[in-house]
């Protein structure tokens, strides 16, 4: 069974800078790490492989330094990895990102099961998985919280809905996005680090893709535009009360009464 896990490099902290003009993130020089939610996706793949055998590939789109998260995936047990990297991919929104990844997936060959994280900690949209499935023309199920059974031609999973839990059987090839806590991710192993330190990371750029139309990638291929970025507003219409505890209690009591929360 061939499993493909999609992993993204994200800033190591939430304090990041944005290019005022383009609204695109300044990622250079910012400490980065693997999107924490993707660790759950990778762990899910590793558990499936433990039970059923097969091969795990990882794929990422990003700048050249994103190779580091592919190395990290090797240290956790991934067999194979590729990076999609090209200046022409820069500034991509969800649509352009998903299209690029779907072209990359076609390039690296068939996968029975594609696993994505639930969302990222930077863009935070949770939209990339479903859009890739659409571009590949395969079914997907989001918010998977449990793998129930791997059959020969399909996978049975549990999907978390607001008021219900649904058990569904999806035919291969398909894509799932997994909830955190589906499995506890393992730590990278030092032994694997030594074993995999020379393992190849394939790098593909636009010229390797079937569809070389530049207008479909990066900022050009992005229907959404970030017009401006700003800090969350603070509420200026407020009262701050100070004083001794009796005064404070009196004020609070009166306010609750005025607002009719106390009859």
């Amino acid at each position: 069974m061939d499993i493909l896990v999609l992993i993204k490099q994200v800033p190591g902290t939430n304090k990041v800078e944005v290019d005022e003009k383009t609204g695109v993130l300044k990622r250079d020089g910012v400490d980065s790490k693997m999107n924490p939610y993707d660790l759950y996706a990778l762990e899910t793949a590793l558990r499936i492989k433990q039970n059923k055998g097969g091969k795990i590939s990882v794929l990422s789109m990003g700048p050249p330094q994103a190779e580091s998260i592919i190395k990290e995936a090797y240290m956790m047990g991934a067999d194979d990895g590729a990076l999609l990297s090209d200046r022409k991919f820069a500034g991509a929104d969800v649509l352009a990102t998903s299209y690029t990844l779907s072209q990359g997936i076609k390039k690296i060959g068939k996968a029975d099961l594609i696993i994505c994280g639930k969302q990222t900690t930077d863009g935070d949209t949770a939209q990339v998985g479903p859009e890739i499935a659409e571009f590949l023309g395969i079914p997907h199920v989001a918010n998977v919280r449990k793998i129930i059974e791997i059959k020969e031609k399909s996978i049975v999973v549990e999907m978390d809905m607001p008021e219900t839990v649904e058990i569904v059987d999806i035919k291969f090839p398909c894509l799932i996005t997994v909830e955190k806590d589906i499995f506890q991710p393992r730590l990278p192993s030092y032994k694997k680090k030594l074993e995999t330190k020379d393992r190849e990371i394939k790098v593909f750029s636009l010229k390797d893709f079937d569809d070389k139309n530049e207008k479909k990638y990066g900022l050009n291929g992005s229907p959404t535009q970030v017009e401006r970025i700003f800090p969350p507003s603070v509420n200026n219409d407020k009262e701050i009360w100070q004083g001794n505890s009796d005064e404070l209690t009196e004020k609070l009591y009166k306010k609750l009464k005025d607002l009719k929360f106390i009859q």
Binding site: D93, V94, L95, S98, Y99, D124, T125, A126, Q127, V128, G129, P130, E131, A133, E134, F135, H140, V141, A142, N143, M159, D160, M161, P162, S222, P223, T224
Partner: peptide
């Protein structure tokens, strides 16, 4: 932005190659 909406909207957006803004 429910479980269903978060799954369906991106799929529709990709089919029409249009933008989708989350949350």
């Amino acid at each position: 932005a429910t479980t269903v909406g978060r799954s369906l909207a991106p799929r529709v957006a990709a089919r029409f190659r249009t933008g989708l803004t989350a949350d």
